[in-house]
Each structure stands twice: as C-alpha cells, then as structure tokens.
Nucleic acid binder design. Structure first.
Lengths: 148, 148
DNA sequence: GTACATAGTCCAAAAAATAAACGCACAGAC
DNA sequence: GTCTGTGCGTTTATTTTTTGGACTATGTAC
C-alpha cells in the first residue's frame, strides 16, 4: 500500500491519519501544545532524529497544521507555531491523554493534571454530542453515508 | 529511539501511542467500530499486508484493546472484538473523524454522518470539560504535575 | 582565530514494512 | 481416501523507512 493513498480516501479518519498518523507527529504536537516552538527544543524533548524531525515539521507546515515563523533574520532563525487548523487537533490529544490516564496509568495515577481555568476544576476531556451535550458511547451512534 | 521506550514514559499521551500509535492501528480500530471482526474482512477493508495485520491484531490483543474470540472449534476459527478498554478509544476515533470533517473534507462535505440515537440528531463529537460541560480550548487549560 | 549557538542537510547502516508464497487444520464433494 | 476450498495465519526475500553522526550555513562572543 502507498501511504499517500490515505489522503484521497473518502474517510475523514483516513484523511486525518494522512496528516498526523505516523509514529512521531502526535508527539511533536504534544510538545507544541506544551509551548515548544524551536527545532532544538523538539529534538531534546522527543529523542527524535534530526532528519525525521525536519521531515515531520515540513509535513505539518505543508498541511497547514504548523506555520514557520522567522523570529530572527540575522542570523536567520525560524520557529514553528500552531495554526488554527493545528489547534483543531487539541481534542485528539486530549482524548489520547484521557485514554492513557484511564487505562494505562499505573497505581501512581495520572502524570499530569489539567485544570479548566474558566470553571476552576481539574478535569478530563469527554466526547460529547454537539446537539444534546450528552457523552457519546459507541452503541448510541448510527452511521450513514453523507454527501455523494 | 526504541519505540518501546514510550511505554515506560511518564506521559499518558506517549503511553497511549505505544498502544495505538503506529500507521495502521487506528485504521484497524476504525474497522472494529464499524463492526468488522474477521481477519479477512480487515485485510479486504484496509489493503494492509497480512503480516502487518497479524502483528497489529496480536499487539492489540496483548494490550487488552481487542480480545480473540473463538467462534468455531472445528475448524478452528477466531475473530477479534473490542474490549471495554478498546471502547475507551472511541473518543480518539471521534475526534479524528471530526478533524477530518472540519479541516480536510473538500467541497463535497463529510463522507459520513453520525446520528446520536438518544437525542435523534446528527452530531459531531466535542471535547468538553468533565466538570462544567463547556467545550475545552487550548488556552483555557493549565497543566500541572500529578502524582510524584 | 577559536569556540559556541541555531537550524537544518547528507549519507551509510540498521530496522521495519511489504508482497507473495507456504503451512495447517478442517470441511465437503466425489 | 483424495481432491479442492476456506480461514487464519507464518516465512522469506525484497523494498522502504528510520537512525545517528558528520557536515553546512550563518552569525555572535571572546
């Protein structure tokens, strides 16, 4: 299979994975949401090879998830920042975090605690229905074809 | 880097990715949530190599996301079903679907429409705060270390 | 001139993924 | 009993990806 065929598949999950579905990208984005912007910071935080990091960053820029922002012209230096499109991936990261906290954290408990500043409480993310606000479970969902 | 080191990292996102973070697993799980259970069905639906499929299914069983259920002893036949732990990944799939619908669907619009049967409406999944029920955005969240 | 910093690229070697063939256990037809 | 088909994989040789370390480019500090 050619990995690039995912892009052309008529499935939004497959298309999303064509952007963020390799072994490194979601870790790169985790760093982004934690405030990391610079090449060497990513490298140090991830233990990724420089080659792969450069390639992943280029890929994310190409897909509009990050943008390359020059913050110094002499010497020339650039950093990587999330775009709006990139921030739209936040729910993906939150749901992965939740899964890890719930199912994979040992007896020690979750390594990170998130606080929702508007309400002031520690929280986890829940997948809820945009129409009624209830939490969504697999059995409650029916699937139909969309536009032709 | 050894991919297996993710498992031991004290980050729930990294740990989650050690379970579902390769190129194929989330597509395998998409099929699961659409009702697929048998080896040959997965193979046909994904265009994955048999080698990889066998390895992915074993990996998911080992991590308790799927369980191997024998449905015929003579001849010996097995199928793969989601466990509770596996169903806990539903929000991950829903958020990937949402990202694809929102950011990657062309002019044609979303290929699939989900209906939330309890309320009867077409919907998309939103990441909401478990404490107050509001939608969570990156800027509203502060992060602190959890247990030592 | 020497050392250091940031942001990469290049390339040979190691690791992983693939496709196609093979294995095996059984069923049913003949 | 032997032939053919099916479901679920494993083995093997080949192709692709990833890695790690050196190297480039541009500039500052001493």
């Amino acid at each position: 299979m050619k990995w690039q065929r995912l892009k052309r598949e008529r499935c939004s999950i497959a298309r999303s994975l064509s952007v963020i579905g390799d072994r490194w990208t979601l870790l790169v984005l985790r760093e982004c949401f934690l405030g990391v912007r610079r090449f060497e910071e990513f490298e140090a935080g991830l233990g990724i090879s420089r080659t792969m990091l450069a390639r992943r960053l280029q890929h994310l820029v190409k897909h509009g998830v990050l943008r390359r922002a020059v913050y110094s012209t002499r010497p020339r230096r650039a950093e990587y920042r999330l775009t709006e499109k990139g921030r739209a991936l936040y729910p993906v990261l939150l749901s992965l975090l939740r899964f890890g906290d719930q199912e994979l954290a040992g007896a020690e408990g979750p390594p990170l605690v998130l606080t929702h500043r508007p309400c002031g409480h520690a929280f986890h993310a829940e997948a809820r229905c945009s129409a009624c606000g209830e939490e969504v479970r697999p059995h409650d969902v029916s699937v139909a074809a969309g536009a032709p």
